[in-house]
């Protein structure tokens, strides 16, 4: 019953997104909503490793950047179509995720977080020193001139992101309600106890890190077409890592809806602030919201709703 309702919701969101492209003319709508969708994917992906498994990851920028640069390289050298870029971007970041998954064997807590932070600096440095990826100069990407079904390429990118976002959230829902997700929750609470109950701890941690990384890479794959000019330091930025960590925390890390709510709230606020005030304030907004939520609603929006609901029924 609940499953059917969620399936209908997913289909509605996808068809609604596709229908929007026929009605909304304002190109800025697509330009800014793209970023909101991108953050829904990144926050949900982050939550699989950070929220469900309990390994706080500061490397979002690295996964995203690796996906974006893989796509950028394939566009400029082989001119591959978008679906292949998404597959390739996801695969390369999945490999990085796999490596980070093995890192959890030795590093826990803050030490794991620091290692992921260092990893994103390493990836950025590698790209700066690789001429084939444009190095520090950056990389120009031209959008294809011909677009079928949509009136321009931006609308196609928007529709692609809607589909990826729905797919990502559906995957998170599926993980949460499976034995895989239950195993991850056990690992988050107590790894020794999880192992004593027969949870294959290492295998699940590696799988969780790989899934999370792959989804972030997929989010990065359409980015070169979106931005047209890619440069390492802004593509692999710490802002992105902080945002995709703050969004699940603000929304609530326990369930799939948390990161979605957090991403919509925070990212929309940032987009509005960019137009009305200045994009310089974006990180400040994150900081204020994060501090506010930590004090007033430590379990995020989802936790806040739950406790309000409980108070009413009591």
């Amino acid at each position: 019953m609940k499953k059917a309702a969620l399936l209908i919701l997913a289909v509605t969101v996808i068809s609604g997104g596709l229908l929007l492209t026929a009605y909304i003319e304002n190109q800025y709508f697509y330009f800014s909503t793209y970023i909101v969708l991108q953050y829904i994917i990144l926050a949900t992906a982050w939550n699989i490793l950070g929220g469900y498994t309990g390994y706080v990851n500061f490397g979002t920028g690295a996964y995203f950047g690796l996906g974006a640069y893989t796509a950028g390289y394939l566009i400029t050298n082989f001119n591959l179509p978008l679906p292949w870029l998404i597959v390739a971007g996801g695969t390369s970041s999945a490999v990085l995720g796999l490596a980070i998954g093995y890192l959890t064997l030795r590093l826990k807590g803050v030490y794991f977080s620091i290692a992921t932070l260092a990893m994103s600096i390493v990836i950025a440095t590698l790209i700066i020193n690789t001429p084939a990826l444009g190095g520090a100069k950056g990389m120009y990407i031209l959008r294809p001139k011909e677009v079928s079904f949509f009136s321009n390429y931006m609308e196609l990118l928007f529709a692609t992101m809607v589909i990826i976002a729905v797919f990502t959230v559906a995957l998170a829902w599926f993980i949460e309600n499976s034995w895989f997700g239950r195993g991850l929750a056990a690992i988050r609470d107590d790894e020794v106890a999880a192992a004593c109950n027969g949870v294959p701890v290492l295998r699940l941690k590696v799988l969780s890190a790989t899934t999370s990384g792959a989804l972030m890479g997929i989010a990065g794959a359409p980015y070169p077409y979106y931005i047209s000019y890619m440069e390492p330091l802004s593509t692999i930025s710490l802002d992105m890592a902080v945002n995709s960590l703050a969004m699940p925390l603000i929304g609530g890390t326990g369930s799939w809806i948390g990161p979605v709510l957090g991403a919509i709230l925070l990212s929309t606020t940032q987009q509005v602030a960019t137009v009305t005030i200045s994009s310089e304030y974006n990180l400040l907004i994150v900081g204020i919201l994060l501090v506010g939520f930590v004090i007033l609603a430590p379990n995020g929006l989802v936790g806040l709703f739950q406790s309000l609901l409980k108070r009413r029924t009591d």
């Binding site: 239950r182 195993g183 929750a185 056990a186 107590d190 106890a193 999880a194 004593c196 027969g198």
Partner: peptide, 17 residues
């Protein structure tokens, strides 16, 4: 070595992993 943040029922279900 219980799972302190999971409920009693969830702890029991984890036993059946």
């Amino acid at each position: 070595h219980l799972f302190p943040k999971l409920t009693v029922r969830e702890n029991l279900l984890m036993g059946a992993f």
